[in-house]
Amino acid sequence: MNDKLSTLAACIEFGKINKAAPYPPQMKGQDGADEITKQLLDEGVAPGDILSDALIKGMEKVGEKFSKNQIFVPQMLMSAKAMQFAMNHLKPFFATGEADRRGTFVVGTVEGDLHDIGKNIVAMMVEGNGYEVIDLGVDVKAEQFVAEIEKNPNCFIGLSALLTTTMANMEKIVSEIKGKYPEQNICIGGAPVTQDFCDKIGADSYNPDPQGVVKFLNSVAVAS
């Protein structure tokens, strides 16, 4: 495999955004995800290979280390940022259909709740694992999710809530979506959310960390 692809995977794993970024200290002064992605494209490496052989590989390691508490939110954010810089080079090719995505993930923090850090991290991780992400932001109502499903019938839905007081809105949104689209896959998450709550409201998947969301999406995307 191209050495540069492995280097790019390492940039994602360790959060090396670009040459100017001082983090991580052991990669200081070296090219980062930004530069290396561009070099790979210039060398003619296929965008789909860059995504699957470098970016997704790096991001998988990030997710594993995060779920084991070996790295923390800052490292994950820097990896996600490195990923975004790489994706900025790749996005034009995805738009022209030259590289396939695994699926579409529509995500938002539920009505009444404005907390978005957890939702953002999940969105970045899911995107980093090869999905198109449509981020509806915070305070998102059921009809906004329904409108997205009408545009993207096979999309996965992700709902986030930080507050016990807004978890009730999660239940409402799941019931409205499932009422119209019983087969639509809905993941829920956020600090107070539990598997019991997920079972109770009829959502399809609860995960305590972003890697769990990725695993769930991958399992369904492969099956379908």
Binding site: G15, P22, Y23, L77, M78
Partner: peptide, 11 residues
């Protein structure tokens, strides 16, 4: 901002 504050000590 929350995200920047989390990365700032490193970046």
């Amino acid at each position: 901002g929350v995200e920047r504050s989390l990365m700032e000590a490193y970046l």
